[in-house]
Design a protein around this nucleic acid. Structure first.
Length: 209
DNA sequence: TTGTCGATTGAG
DNA sequence: TCAATCGACAAT
């Protein structure tokens, strides 16, 4: 199925599951790697406290306020890059974090970019490893994933029969809603980790008296 | 200008 | 369970 911008335009909670099973193609550095998306997370903009766009537009999150179907890469924990697909209408921030994927082509390239010796299924498991395997970083932010000549693009969407949903990984706020979506039974899907700290009084993190 | 914290990962 | 490691952003 060809990817239309309209399919990517809308609330992140609606668009996110549509990306499950889609093929992401990277030709960064002249090296071809493609992967099938198996796990995503939705980040709404100004109404989602966990979103980078929660406090309005800044230099970093600017692309989230643009048209749908662009790449948004951000740097986190002083060492990792993570990749998102923007999805809001122009002026309305929203994005879908690409958390995990199953490699289809370019395993050798992906392995050369990934430290350690992860098994094949884990090469693009977790947002930072996914970005690394596909060679994605800040310089690619803003790329149009739907443009034929783009070095990074969404090659196809697939009609997904079934998926599962749950809380976002490593996010301590807005745990009221299942924002994470994944394909059941896929070995590349990452495991759940609770968010670190909670905000506000009575954070309930005390162990025992 | 300074301080805090993070959409993670891998080791202990 | 914890350290690595640094950019973004809120608070001075």
């Amino acid at each position: 199925m060809t990817v239309g911008r309209a399919q990517l335009s809308g609330p992140a909670l609606v668009v996110a599951p549509r990306l499950l099973g889609a093929t992401l193609l990277s030709e960064v550095g002249g090296l071809r790697v493609s992967a099938r998306i198996t796990e995503v997370e939705a980040y709404e903009g100004e109404r989602d406290p966990a979103s980078h766009a929660y406090r309005g537009p800044t230099r970093r999150n600017e692309v989230m306020f643009g048209e749908a179907g662009r790449l948004y890469c951000y740097f986190v924990y002083g060492m990792h890059w993570c990749a998102n697909v923007t999805c809001g209408r122009t002026g309305v921030a929203a994005a879908v974090l690409l958390r995990s994927a199953q490699l289809l082509e370019g395993e050798t390239v992906a392995r050369s970019r990934t430290p350690g010796h992860p098994g094949t299924a884990k090469l693009a498991s977790g947002p930072a490893r996914l970005a690394r395997s596909l060679g994605l970083s800040g310089e690619h932010t803003g790329l149009d994933l739907l443009a034929a000549g783009s070095p990074v693009r969404l090659a196809s969407l697939v009609a997904i029969g079934e998926y599962e949903a749950g809380p976002r990984v490593g996010v301590a706020v807005a745990q009221d809603h299942p924002w994470r979506f994944w394909l059941p039974g896929e070995p590349s899907v990452s495991s759940y980790r609770r968010g670190g700290r909670r905000r506000g009084p009575g954070n309930g993190q005390t162990g025992s008296p």
